[in-house]
Design a protein around this nucleic acid. Structure first.
Lengths: 328, 328
DNA sequence: CTGAAAGCGCTTACAG
DNA sequence: CTGAAAGCGCTTACAG
């Protein structure tokens, strides 16, 4: 069934039918109701593709994700995608996936060349920005989930800096001073922010950071066991992990050595990926609503596509979950 | 730039231009070359959406996945999606994601109603088939990754039955007879096949299965520790896990209790999800090429959409990886 | 081998 | 408030 069929059946022009559906342009209330009722009864759905051609739009956005991301990131992408896809659907858009591995943009390029999308969501904080710069030169609307380096990029992120600062502050206020920090690559922007938040908390408390307790750029998980031993030997009060992946290795090691949490050492994580969800004792951690992150990001992109005003940088909240693992 | 621009610039009709690009219909070699060269030089790309409208196609397929799948399944979905998306891209298609949680098909329904896709890939072996039956009544072309219950459904899967039988056979031939099996829900079709393969191997070897060593329908991972203790008490030679998720819990427990693999007990897994990749000692397991699964599945769907002949059921291979963990 | 024309199913100035 | 007509950028019988 097409708009023509409806027009014929109702004895009106298809212009009128179109207006009744879209809500654009003047139209008599009665006529509109008649059209709407007919559509409802006959279960008519306009073809997005024909509508798209007429409006030079596709009603599709692309979600770019690295094809080679690690298992640790998987839950993040899943939830984020859920948020994006849910919001897109609500606004009558769909999301096309585009996997980029090792800088191979061909999938994305094809999609853009063929006019298959109206905009793009980038799903990882970029270090060198190959994709971002491609999109900028091509003048393709896009938004990043997570912070980007360039300020001109529209970005949506959680407030990792604030979150890490707050969690660290709380620990310090509880009298937990000798805190070891284990973290991944400092090239990754979010890790930089986490470290900054950690330091800021110390600064505000007027306590110097013990740099010998900072274990950064730990990319090889095999090293973690040794690091934990070192930390224990140094008699630290607490181990803070930059993410749950690291944290799960730390917990494993402590478990294996029968070291009691929180009695013998406390543990906290700067990120909750649901990997640790059921851990006993419960782990103190930061909670971010990743599904919401995805939704806000999607909304921002669609607003931008619709030429609405959009915040250049949106910062979303966090929760500090104090649990058993840092009890005094 | 459109096809009209090219026609005008080249002084030919747009019919001819279209033919040169699509390769359909008779056209002089010289004319074609001229068009192709022009296109190359001016970097022209036809609009997929206009092409789609003219052909009543979208060049998009949907990839349906459960919105609530567990972390254990994540690596599977990632790789599968990679395979699908790579193949789709090669064949000039794109893949739209559709998340279905708790039987809420609205996203998918919207997509189909609005004519946004040409076909669907279902990504999980369905127990009750809500999505499948919806697609069947709507006459939407679709293929499943993994086996489906109904034979009329086009499906692509790995040969789990054969794989499990072979691994079990090898263990039996090595003289490992007292094998405990820990598995998840027997409602899931793939788990049924794994169990059948296991039993078949025993049958072929003329050895009766010790049913008291079968721990099935283990949905609560909390129970695994106790089960391992029971198995150890029963003096089993080997623990076979139906998937890596279960296996990682088993390994954890054994590690905690300082039980040596393979000296004190052997361990094997019926699935390799890369969760255990770096485990010491290396774990004997089955290997399936999930990316290939995705690619074949996508190919099958696109062939079907193109009205080509398609196998009703495609069974892909496997590898048995004998490792340290089952050494005599 | 090539082209004029109709068509895919919508939208949107323009005129009334 | 409503409609005829042109247009979005392609494809494809049909005719030559």
């Amino acid at each position: 069934m097409t708009i023509d069929d409806i027009a014929r059946d109702l004895g009106i022009s298809k212009t009128t039918v179109s207006r009744a559906i879209s809500g654009k342009g003047r139209i008599g209330q009665e006529t509109r109701d008649r059209v709407l009722r007919y559509i409802e009864e006959n279960n008519y759905r306009p073809s997005a593709i024909a509508k798209g051609l007429a409006q030079s739009k596709t009603f599709n956005i692309a979600f770019v994700m690295p094809g080679d991301y690690s298992n640790a990131d998987l839950p993040f992408f899943q939830k984020c995608m859920w948020g994006i896809s849910t919001m897109a659907s609500q606004r009558d858009y769909d999301v096309i996936i585009s996997m980029v591995d090792e800088g191979n943009l061909s999938q994305l390029v094809r999609m853009i060349d063929h006019h298959k999308i109206d905009g793009v969501i980038l799903s990882r904080t970029l270090e060198k920005d190959e994709v971002a710069s491609y999109l900028m030169t091509g003048n393709v609307p896009f938004v990043t989930v997570g912070s980007a380096e360039e300020d001109s990029i529209i970005q949506v992120d959680n407030d990792h800096f604030g979150a890490c600062r707050e969690l660290t502050s709380i620990l310090l206020h509880k009298g937990i001073r000798k805190i070891a920090l284990i973290g991944g690559s400092t090239n990754v922007i979010v890790n930089q922010k986490r470290l900054l938040g950690f330091r800021e908390a110390y600064m505000k408390a007027g306590i110097p950071v013990d740099n010998s307790l900072l274990y950064l750029d730990i990319e090889n998980t095999g090293r973690i066991e040794g690091i934990v031993e070192e930390i224990l030997a140094k008699n630290a009060d607490c181990i803070v992990c930059m993410d749950d992946f690291i944290c799960s290795y730390v917990l494993n090691k402590l478990d294996k050595d029968h070291i009691k949490i929180p009695e013998e050492i406390k543990v906290a994580s700067f990120y909750n990926s649901s990997v640790l969800e059921q851990h006993q004792p419960a782990i103190t951690e930061l909670k971010f609503d990743v599904a919401e992150l995805g939704m806000v990001c999607c909304n921002t992109l669609l607003d931008y596509i619709d030429k609405k005003e959009v915040k250049q940088k949106t910062l979303l909240g966090y929760e500090v979950l104090m649990k058993e693992s840092t009890k005094n």
